[in-house]
Design a protein around this nucleic acid. Structure first.
Lengths: 343, 343
DNA sequence: TATATCCATGAAACCGATTTCCTTCAGTGT
DNA sequence: ACACTGAAGGAAATCGGTTTCATGGATATA
């Protein structure tokens, strides 16, 4: 039978209020009683009831995790999961647990994130996004619930976000090609209405222009971040000659798809076409050839997200945003000399 | 300001109890009042408070997700995450949300899973395991909390589990080799104290014996399921000649590590040594050569887990267990003729 | 028409904490 | 000695629901 605070109070010969004060270290309590009560708590293994506590305090110490967007972003997304994992560890240190919304098609009300936040009295939310803002995400963003976006630009009154400096990511890739005299480069983006993808595209175009490299319209294609779409996009690019000398894809999975298309066309990577992806997921290291990519510091993003969200919850800060610097990782798929580069 | 059940009651001119009965469809209520109240709820977007509700009912509609084990199993584990994802979708349909324990080193009490289950009044738990039973998992298993293990044999009074038929997995691999006259095969297992790994090993040894293939003790090595350990294990195996003709690793990641070691030794896969992994994670398809593996039906496992756990929670069933049949997927790394096999 | 039955609803206790306010009492200052 | 201060701890209201039980009216039975 579960112990309640009353049981503890009775055992210690004090009132429930006193026990509560001892547990939460509020009010003023003599050290003798304090010690006695603490001992009993220890011995009995008493744990205060979560629901009673959050009912009384209107706090939950729970962070909601929302996988947003049209795309099927979920527990096995190679990029977001690593961010989330770092987030989880850091936020755990601060005493929060994580509640995952089970994106239930079932009842319409489950789509309503704001309502669910209130329902659970969540202290805050982490929103990882396949980039696409749904109405109910927007509504949540604009509410007073502290929100932290990963790769999604939240603008609400108590929302911050962290994202990779995507413009710089593109610039680094373009510069790399430029330095090696590779001037004809194609781009495979995410969905056209995706903010992140658009930033990458704009960064790409801008760098290309600045460096005097021309961009062929046919060499700009769009996918949905996943493998198959990269394959198709690359097919389109290879539909007409001349071929580009290099391709930059806005996600590794699309790059891997593109890799397959290039191979299917009987071309060699990196000799005929060089290829660079984006994200640095694990599979890059195992592909043949190993995929060059723009590495996003996922651990750092996760940790930052945790700190920023905590600040937001405590009202320590105004909404803010942080751009994390990306790093270009050159592997075989864009190696510029004949000898293979090692990982 | 948040609406309470009393507000709704007042607006509808009925008592809170009546509203509650309407929401939960209990008791008997006239259709006119029912309709009136429902309309108001609809209009106001009223949502009952989670904490108040679970305080009163002692239920939470929450499932705890526990990543157990010594190994750092977490949000970016390629195998478990896919299982969890399928689980999440299915259990979501049933109206549950998922609470992730944030494995907080901080306070000792956070290690105590049972206490935390009671604290949150969880309806049940999903335990995915890096195979190693910690004391606090054992305690949880033996309690009355409904638990469902994935790849971990839970034996408690209200625990079920689902796992791949690991013995059969090994058998299929061995048989495959046997059929192609490959009789010298090495084995790289998980941690020696891991139950799952042991089953795979026993299955391996047994099949080998049955088919009259001899097993060299040096050809049995152990890792920790991760890449680096596979690399090391393979190094040991290659330390002495003769080399085995084939290697079966108990995880894909270890197989990928082994692949690297074999390449480093200047050997060719599959010509010199054939290699088969286990799990069928994504990276298998991208490695060079593409890795053969024993595929575990992760979606099915996740779905089954959800159904079984739900049954357990509703008291519909006795504890039970299901072994899911594995499937041997042959790719390039164990191809038996010269022409490359496609995926 | 009188009585038994049933349906719809309300009143109130309860779930297990927190928190405000109040009382008591010991110690201080004069 | 006497009022005063502040610390220690208790009583009770509260958070927002659920659930049991009682009650009054409508309907069915005799």
């Amino acid at each position: 039978m579960k112990l309640t605070i009353k049981d503890i109070a009775k055992m210690a010969g004090v009132s429930p209020g006193t026990v509560s004060k001892i547990i939460n270290d509020t009010g003023s309590i003599g050290w003798k009683t304090k010690e006695k009560v603490l001992k009993i708590i220890e011995e009995t293994g008493y744990q205060p009831s979560f629901s009673a506590k959050s009912l009384a305090t209107k706090k939950s110490n729970l962070i909601g995790l929302i996988y947003a967007g049209e795309i099927d972003v979920d527990f096995n997304h190679p990029f977001f999961n690593q961010v989330i994992n770092a987030f989880r560890k850091t936020i755990g240190q601060m005493g929060y647990d994580i509640l995952v919304f089970s994106n239930n098609q079932f009842s319409k009300s489950n789509q309503d994130y704001l309502a669910r936040c209130k329902h659970f009295q969540l202290d805050g939310c982490l929103i990882v996004a396949g980039d696409y803002i749904e109405d109910s995400i927007y509504e949540l963003d604009q509410s007073s619930v502290p929100c932290l976006g990963v790769d999604i630009e939240l603008t609400g009154p108590s929302s911050s976000y962290v994202t990779t400096d995507n413009s710089k990511a593109s610039a680094k890739v373009v510069e790399y090609f430029y330095l090696h005299s590779i001037k004809e480069v194609a781009f495979i983006g995410g969905p056209e209405d995706s903010v992140i993808s658009d930033i990458r595209k704009q960064g790409f175009l801008q760098s290309m222009n600045q460096l005097g490299m021309t961009v062929k319209p046919d060499w700009i294609q769009y996918g949905n971040y996943f493998e198959e779409s990269g394959y198709q996009a690359m097919k389109s690019i290879l539909a007409n000659r001349p071929y580009p000398q290099a391709v930059f894809a806005a996600s590794d999975m699309m790059a891997l798809g593109a890799m397959k298309a290039i191979k299917d066309a009987g071309l060699n990577i990196p000799v005929d076409i060089k290829l660079v992806g984006c994200d640095d997921i694990e599979a890059c290291r195992y592909s043949d050839p190993a995929l060059s990519t723009v590495k996003q510091d996922k651990d750092k993003m996760g940790r930052l997200a945790a700190y920023m969200l905590n600040d937001l919850i405590n009202g320590d800060t105004e909404p803010s945003s942080i751009l994390v610097d990306p790093e270009l990782v050159i592997r075989e798929s864009s190696a510029v000399d004949t000898k293979k580069l090692s990982i």
